[in-house]
Nucleic acid binder design. Structure first.
Lengths: 413, 413
DNA sequence: CTTACTTTGTTCAGCGGCCTAAGAATCTAC
DNA sequence: GTAGATTCTTAGGCCGCTGAACAAAGTAAG
């Protein structure tokens, strides 16, 4: 049978990563519980935990009540043992976040966007911002694990180090990651907003290790990030989770992506704003984000047309969530991103209801739907979480290599 | 279980599994190429390959041309070193397959279905069928790795051993896996048709190790199986891939699943047959499968209404494939299952065209779309492949356990 | 043919991860 | 205060993987 006998050989990428991840998810846990949760032996847990304590990552924090024998010594992450920086590049501005090991935000600020400036200049600004704030709030650079840089749009897979936000074409071939690495002297990771937000939710939301979790990220577009069993699912070219371009009507309106009837074309912020304008709703007219914000405020005030439009959008978002949940058999869907930060209370019940009634496996288990506690800065927090994740609980090391190497081989039998 | 079997040596799971899997995918490969493809060292490859040769799984097969030094010794699986049995339980009948290591079918036969018979009696019949054919074609039971039993519908996650085909309610609590294990003396795996078909395609279709691949399985319903990097993606409750119940029209017809506008309600065989009946097309009327077959033949003859109906269905299937590909960022979509075996030539171009124009990441890479070479018996072949996969190239051992253990823990910070 | 060089594959000592087994520490219960 | 339960640690060993040196088997000049 599927004899899931743990213990023999390399069941986990590394026991260190597994143990750290379980401590993170549990918040507070004893060594015995760790052995049960990881499948490792008590001996292994003991030595690995000792090492983590020596590194300062984990601290002993009181003891549990006895259950008839020696009481358990409780362990938890020392949230201030390490830090990570998250940087969210968006067309409107740059959001910075410094997070501690627990995923909690210890600093957060925002600066104007890159505009048409030279990339090298922008990188210098970013490095200066990070350095300044780190000294100001007194964080030793030695305990900063790295910088997670997040932007909308897919990462370039060719170099693995550049990224091409659709709005910043002149950045297309600029080696952003390497440049920031040079300028800050810190390791740098790049990823897109939705994926980063998913990792952020996983890390700071206390999501269980084995959970199948996705975030629905609505900024100006609609995307999703997928985290299963602590691992980001990226797909072939890091474009997994493109839920905004799933078709919900064969004869729907044309979308900028080239397809028809995409969720985003019906229900994305740009579409909703356009619908509002067509319906004669008064809007500031200074870009999609601000118009959508105005619309959300109007709906909150109870204005009929804005409410109708947002309700319709929420209906489609519910469909997108249902699609994600059915395809991936999810445990948890988190709504996050600037647009949900504004209008989440309107979207949340719609998505919840849709999944309660339309999720295929609802007989087997429910799908929890929540709004992120830091929806407006989720991408930046996610950038920091990416660093925490990759430095502390790496998974699937080497798999990437295999894929690359295989492209040289004959295609198959 | 059998005495000197591999698989007990789950200790050397990882590198052994990786190497076997790369050999499978490549068909023929040398040791140096294995080191490059797996990321292991030449020393490790050498010793692991020697062990595989000793076990008889791998054979040396000639030498490649020299590239300026010692010529490479080519390795390949010995297809006749091991066998696996696949059993597909369907409402209409039971399909048996015996496959060799290469995933090639060496025997294939079909018997009437279970009907209302006592499950224990059916299990005895199945065991007898397997034993009879094995002796008839002269396969030593010692080289048979196990039996993969496949049925439509989800597996019960509670026991991990029962499965509940919607059409056979009185099997609901019967421990099918354990019973067949007892009756045959072989390890047994259970899974649903779409998932099994995906593994079958991966194993016998020579799919590359790192590929992101899904099969669209159309039997009486529409499902999908997902295999990424050699691992089946199952989701929380083994219900991943329920693409048939993805919504493609907010106000679509009601579906038996309780939702509205599901792909299956528009384009599943049952729906197509119903549409044909409503349109006055003459059909045998002896069940969905036969009616759909008649419709496919009529369309192949060029009859207008059947062609129109199947084209419409293909359009929706294309949407389903696009959804899968966008959410998972796929490399490969395989159409398989009885319905595609009949009407695949009509569906294939529609799905291909849809993905060529509507796949979100089409700028980064194409999505290949093919029809399985054994679409009509894909589920049974998949059952055998499940066994090959789990015995020879197991992945992610122990992860499941972690999940179960974690449910006892506090939910988080 | 001989020599030099390239490439492929093997052997072997060693490191590190994780296990088994045994023991130490610290509580409850009677 | 002793017995039992439970938690955690220490010691020793197995095994997979690696690094490095070595052996084998070819090509390319002279």
């Amino acid at each position: 049978m599927n004899g899931a006998q743990p213990g023999l050989g390399a069941a986990h990428a590394s026991s260190r990563a597994a143990i750290l991840d379980v401590i993170r998810a549990a918040g507070t846990i004893s060594r015995v519980e760790l052995t049960r949760a990881t499948g490792l032996t008590a001996a292994t847990v003991s030595t690995v935990v000792r090492r983590l304590i020596d590194e300062g990552l984990v601290v002993e924090a009181g003891r549990a009540e006895s259950t008839g024998g020696k009481p358990r010594m409780l362990l938890q992450l020392d949230p201030y043992a390490r830090y990570a920086v998250g940087v969210h590049l968006d067309h409107a501005g740059i959001t910075y976040v410094i997070a501690n090991l627990g995923g909690a935000v210890v600093a957060r600020w925002r600066r104007p966007g890159a505009g048409a400036d030279d990339p090298r200049e922008v990188v210098a600004r970013i490095a200066a911002e990070i350095a300044t704030t780190m000294t100001r709030i007194g964080i030793d650079p030695a305990v900063v694990l790295g910088v997670g840089v997040v932007s909308p749009g897919p990462i370039s897979t060719s170099t693995g180090m550049t990224l091409t936000p659709p709005v910043m074409q002149h950045w297309a071939e600029f080696p952003l990651g390497a440049a920031i690495e040079d300028a800050t002297g810190l390791p740098v990771l790049l990823d897109n907003d939705a994926t980063a937000a998913a990792v952020g939710e996983y890390w700071s939301g206390g999501v269980a290790t084995g959970a199948a979790c996705a975030t629905l990220y609505m900024g100006t577009g609609i995307g999703a990030g997928i985290v299963v069993d602590g691992t980001v699912y990226r797909g072939r070219s890091s474009n997994a989770g493109e839920i905004g371009h799933v078709c919900v009507a064969l004869d729907g309106p044309e979308c900028w992506c080239g397809s028809r009837g995409c969720v985003e074309a019906f229900a994305g912020p740009a579409a909703v704003v356009a619908q509002a304008a067509a319906a004669g709703v008064a809007l500031p007219g200074r870009g999609v984000s601000e118009d959508f914000a105005a619309l959300a405020r109007a709906a909150a005030r109870g204005e009929a047309e804005p409410m109708r439009l947002l309700r319709a959008s929420a209906e489609y978002l519910g469909v997108a969530a249902q699609t994600l949940a059915n395809v991936l058999d999810l445990d948890l869907v988190v709504l996050t991103g600037p647009s949900f930060a504004l209008a989440g209370s309107l979207y949340l019940p719609a998505v919840q209801e849709r999944l309660a009634r339309g999720f295929f496996a609802r007989g087997a288990h429910p799908v929890r739907v929540t709004i992120s506690t830091h929806a407006s800065e989720a991408a930046a927090v996610g950038g920091a979480a990416l660093v925490l994740q990759s430095e502390l609980a790496p998974r699937q090391v080497g798999t990437r290599m295999v894929v690359e190497a295989l492209t040289d081989l004959p295609t198959g039998a």
